[in-house]
Amino acid sequence: MMYRRVFNYPWRFRSMFEEIERMRQMMDRWLGETEGILPMTRAGVFPLVNVTENKDNFFIRAELPGVEKEDLDIQATTNSVSISGERKIPAEDEGARYHRREREAGKFSRVITLGADIQPDKVEANLKNGVLTVTVPKAEIAKPKQISIK
Protein backbone atom coordinates (compact mmCIF):
# COMPACT_ATOMS: atom_id res chain seq x y z
CA MET A 1 0.00 0.00 0.00
CA MET A 2 2.69 2.37 1.08
CA TYR A 3 4.74 1.44 -1.94
CA ARG A 4 1.95 2.29 -4.34
CA ARG A 5 1.18 5.55 -2.64
CA VAL A 6 4.75 6.65 -2.72
CA PHE A 7 5.49 5.70 -6.28
CA ASN A 8 2.24 6.82 -7.83
CA TYR A 9 2.67 10.30 -6.44
CA PRO A 10 6.14 11.58 -7.06
CA TRP A 11 5.36 14.89 -5.31
CA ARG A 12 4.47 12.98 -2.17
CA PHE A 13 7.76 11.20 -2.40
CA ARG A 14 9.55 14.46 -2.65
CA SER A 15 7.75 16.14 0.20
CA MET A 16 8.62 13.18 2.37
CA PHE A 17 12.30 13.80 1.69
CA GLU A 18 11.86 17.46 2.35
CA GLU A 19 10.33 16.62 5.70
CA ILE A 20 13.27 14.39 6.59
CA GLU A 21 15.71 17.06 5.46
CA ARG A 22 13.90 19.64 7.59
CA MET A 23 14.09 17.39 10.64
CA ARG A 24 17.75 16.77 10.00
CA GLN A 25 18.39 20.49 9.79
CA MET A 26 16.60 21.05 13.10
CA MET A 27 18.64 18.31 14.73
CA ASP A 28 21.84 19.77 13.38
CA ARG A 29 20.86 23.18 14.63
CA TRP A 30 20.28 21.90 18.16
CA LEU A 31 23.52 19.97 18.17
CA GLY A 32 25.37 22.83 16.54
CA GLU A 33 24.15 25.33 19.08
CA THR A 34 25.56 23.44 22.01
CA GLU A 35 28.97 23.30 20.37
CA GLY A 36 28.89 26.79 18.99
CA ILE A 37 29.38 25.42 15.49
CA LEU A 38 27.24 26.48 12.57
CA PRO A 39 24.80 23.93 11.26
CA MET A 40 26.24 22.31 8.17
CA THR A 41 23.67 20.64 5.99
CA ARG A 42 23.82 19.85 2.34
CA ALA A 43 20.94 19.38 -0.04
CA GLY A 44 23.27 17.64 -2.46
CA VAL A 45 22.32 19.94 -5.30
CA PHE A 46 24.69 22.22 -7.20
CA PRO A 47 25.36 25.00 -6.44
CA LEU A 48 25.90 24.82 -2.70
CA VAL A 49 24.43 27.93 -1.14
CA ASN A 50 24.82 29.92 2.02
CA VAL A 51 21.71 31.77 3.10
CA THR A 52 21.84 34.58 5.63
CA GLU A 53 19.30 37.16 6.70
CA ASN A 54 19.07 40.51 8.36
CA LYS A 55 16.02 42.56 9.28
CA ASP A 56 15.08 43.47 5.72
CA ASN A 57 16.68 40.95 3.39
CA PHE A 58 17.69 37.41 2.78
CA PHE A 59 21.08 36.90 1.11
CA ILE A 60 21.71 33.81 -0.96
CA ARG A 61 25.33 33.24 -1.90
CA ALA A 62 26.85 30.61 -4.14
CA GLU A 63 30.32 30.03 -5.50
CA LEU A 64 30.13 29.86 -9.28
CA PRO A 65 33.65 30.30 -10.62
CA GLY A 66 33.84 30.61 -14.38
CA VAL A 67 30.10 31.09 -14.89
CA GLU A 68 29.24 34.08 -17.07
CA LYS A 69 26.31 36.21 -16.02
CA GLU A 70 24.70 35.60 -19.42
CA ASP A 71 24.58 31.89 -18.59
CA LEU A 72 22.72 32.41 -15.32
CA ASP A 73 18.96 32.48 -14.92
CA ILE A 74 17.48 33.64 -11.63
CA GLN A 75 13.77 33.66 -10.95
CA ALA A 76 11.76 34.50 -7.87
CA THR A 77 8.30 33.64 -6.62
CA THR A 78 6.61 34.82 -3.43
CA ASN A 79 8.68 32.53 -1.23
CA SER A 80 11.40 30.94 -3.33
CA VAL A 81 14.28 31.79 -5.62
CA SER A 82 15.51 29.53 -8.38
CA ILE A 83 19.05 29.64 -9.70
CA SER A 84 19.83 27.78 -12.87
CA GLY A 85 22.46 28.00 -15.52
CA GLU A 86 25.35 26.33 -17.19
CA ARG A 87 29.02 26.27 -16.48
CA LYS A 88 30.96 26.15 -19.71
CA ILE A 89 34.58 25.23 -20.02
CA PRO A 90 35.94 26.10 -23.43
CA ALA A 91 37.65 23.27 -25.26
CA GLU A 92 41.42 23.58 -25.52
CA ASP A 93 43.53 23.45 -28.63
CA GLU A 94 44.12 20.07 -30.04
CA GLY A 95 47.37 18.55 -29.02
CA ALA A 96 47.13 19.81 -25.47
CA ARG A 97 47.97 17.10 -23.00
CA TYR A 98 45.98 17.18 -19.79
CA HIS A 99 47.80 16.58 -16.55
CA ARG A 100 44.92 17.43 -14.22
CA ARG A 101 41.25 17.77 -14.88
CA GLU A 102 39.34 18.64 -11.75
CA ARG A 103 37.07 21.41 -12.98
CA GLU A 104 33.73 20.33 -14.34
CA ALA A 105 31.30 21.77 -16.82
CA GLY A 106 27.58 21.19 -16.85
CA LYS A 107 24.13 22.47 -16.17
CA PHE A 108 22.63 23.22 -12.81
CA SER A 109 19.32 24.22 -11.35
CA ARG A 110 18.31 24.78 -7.79
CA VAL A 111 15.29 26.17 -5.99
CA ILE A 112 15.80 27.73 -2.58
CA THR A 113 12.65 28.06 -0.49
CA LEU A 114 12.86 30.83 2.04
CA GLY A 115 11.23 30.81 5.43
CA ALA A 116 9.21 33.97 4.86
CA ASP A 117 7.42 35.81 2.09
CA ILE A 118 9.58 37.95 -0.16
CA GLN A 119 9.17 40.71 -2.73
CA PRO A 120 9.93 38.86 -5.97
CA ASP A 121 10.03 42.02 -8.09
CA LYS A 122 12.80 43.56 -5.98
CA VAL A 123 15.26 40.67 -5.98
CA GLU A 124 18.74 41.70 -7.07
CA ALA A 125 21.64 39.52 -8.14
CA ASN A 126 25.31 40.33 -8.31
CA LEU A 127 28.13 38.18 -9.66
CA LYS A 128 31.58 39.21 -8.52
CA ASN A 129 34.84 37.27 -8.55
CA GLY A 130 32.89 34.07 -9.16
CA VAL A 131 30.60 34.53 -6.17
CA LEU A 132 26.90 35.08 -6.79
CA THR A 133 25.00 37.12 -4.23
CA VAL A 134 21.22 37.31 -4.52
CA THR A 135 19.65 39.96 -2.31
CA VAL A 136 16.06 39.08 -1.55
CA PRO A 137 13.98 41.74 0.22
CA LYS A 138 11.49 40.34 2.69
CA ALA A 139 7.84 41.20 2.26
CA GLU A 140 6.66 43.99 4.57
CA ILE A 141 4.55 41.50 6.48
CA ALA A 142 7.57 39.28 7.20
CA LYS A 143 9.78 42.02 8.61
CA PRO A 144 10.13 42.22 12.37
CA LYS A 145 8.23 45.10 13.92
CA GLN A 146 9.43 47.06 16.88
CA ILE A 147 6.67 47.13 19.43
CA SER A 148 6.68 50.01 21.80
CA ILE A 149 5.58 49.45 25.36
CA LYS A 150 3.09 51.95 26.61
Partner: peptide
Protein backbone atom coordinates in the same frame (compact mmCIF):
# COMPACT_ATOMS: atom_id res chain seq x y z
CA UNK B 1 24.08 42.34 10.91
CA UNK B 2 23.50 39.12 8.99
CA UNK B 3 22.51 35.90 10.69
CA UNK B 4 23.09 32.49 9.18
CA UNK B 5 20.05 30.60 7.98
CA UNK B 6 21.65 27.79 5.99
CA UNK B 7 25.35 27.16 5.59
CA UNK B 8 26.36 24.63 2.96
CA UNK B 9 29.85 25.71 2.06
Amino acid sequence: DEEDVLIEY
